[in-house]
Amino acid sequence: MQRRTTLGAACALLATMAWSMTAQAQSSGAAPLIAVTNLAYAQQVSEYFVAGTYQQSSQMSAQGSHSYGRYGGSGQQSMQASEQASGTYVAGRYSYIEQRDLAGYTNDIKGAILQGTSFKLVQGKAFDAGAPQPSKAEQVLNQVQTGKMHTPRAQPQVNDVIARIKKGEFNGADYVLFGSVSSIDFTDALSPLQGTSSASRQYGLQLLVDFSLIHTKTYEIKAAFSAQGSGNDTKLLSNRGDIAPPNRAKVMRETSLSLAQDVYQQLVTQLGYSDPKLARGVHTQQPGIYPAGQPMTPAPVVQQPPEQVLILK
């Protein structure tokens, strides 16, 4: 009797372990796949163009006659001239929208998602801007020579995430975290220190990005928010006329880290309200990053003392 009980308990334990392993495998296999896109960026660009052709040819000939004596012979005199000229000259300023994606501010976002959630990430394709358009000078010159207007080719839109999903740029992803830059601002200020011959130079970067978490099958938006990143570098100059280049790498790194922190905080907080199933994938609290349901309290920023630059003359 005791042997049967022990055997039954062992079988029950094995069944429990098998069920636990199966449930864990199913749970890990059900983790949503997310593609984090490069930041979409569009800006207006203006360029000056000149288009012109010019041809010129000229020809001239002259003949004369002479007479000898009073009853001498006489000659002939003639002159010919020919000139041809043709030219086209067109100049102006042309403005257009340049579309591209920035790849330098998404790695920290991916790292925060990998460290703080059970979501899996897949690599999407870079934005395909299509075949390049002829320059404005080439378009105008072709119009002058042939008399035909140039028909512009349709270019893909970097902010049209639905078209990019349909095009297959994020194959295999269940969701796309799409970010579009709405503002990017570099600052460079020199401030004299009163009462001294020194000055402080402050170089900074402010980045504002609009994000949306979109389902690739239903195009449902699970989260939508704006996130901000910022970084700065301050140097104390021994003399106001001295020049010290800023540490741009430090500024960009601080901007990327602060942007990733803001994205993570807002993403997991909104998922706690819009989709509890996705919110259950948040499993850890990172330093300065808070899981769903927690208030978005900014992490304390450690102020680094300004770098003092002494220039010996």
Rank of each mutant, 00 (worst) to 15 (best):
T5F: 15
G8D: 01
A9P: 14
A10R: 09
L13S: 04
L14M: 13
A18E: 01
A23Q: 13
A23T: 15
A30D: 03
L33V: 04
A35F: 00
T37E: 01
Q43K: 14
Q43C: 11
Y48K: 15
F49R: 07
A51I: 04
A51R: 01
T53G: 13
Q63T: 07
Y71R: 12
G73Y: 07
G73A: 11
G73K: 09
S74G: 14
G75V: 05
Q76S: 15
S78D: 10
Q80D: 10
S82A: 15
S82Q: 14
Q84K: 15
Q84Y: 15
G87M: 08
G87A: 10
V90P: 07
Y96C: 04
E98C: 12
Q99D: 06
L102C: 07
A103T: 14
Y105S: 03
I109P: 00
K110W: 12
I113S: 00
I113R: 02
G116K: 02
S118N: 07
S118V: 01
K120R: 11
G124P: 00
A126V: 09
A126P: 09
D128E: 13
A129S: 14
P132L: 03
E138D: 13
V140Q: 02
Q143G: 13
Q145F: 10
G147S: 13
M149K: 15
H150C: 08
P156A: 08
V158S: 07
N159Y: 06
N159A: 10
R164G: 06
I165R: 03
A173T: 02
D174W: 00
Y175F: 07
V176P: 01
F178Y: 01
G179L: 01
S182A: 10
S183L: 06
A189N: 15
A189M: 14
S197F: 09
R201C: 00
Q202F: 07
Q202L: 11
G204P: 08
Q206D: 10
F211K: 04
F211N: 03
F211G: 04
S212R: 03
S230T: 06
G231M: 00
N232K: 09
D233T: 08
L236I: 11
N239D: 09
N239G: 12
R240A: 00
R240E: 00
N247S: 06
R248M: 03
R248F: 03
M252V: 12
R253D: 04
S258W: 05
D262G: 01
L271D: 00
Y273E: 01
P276G: 09
K277L: 12
K277W: 10
K277M: 13
T284Q: 01
Q286H: 05
P287S: 06
G288D: 00
A292W: 00
P295Y: 02
P295A: 05
V302M: 07
Q304P: 04
I311R: 14
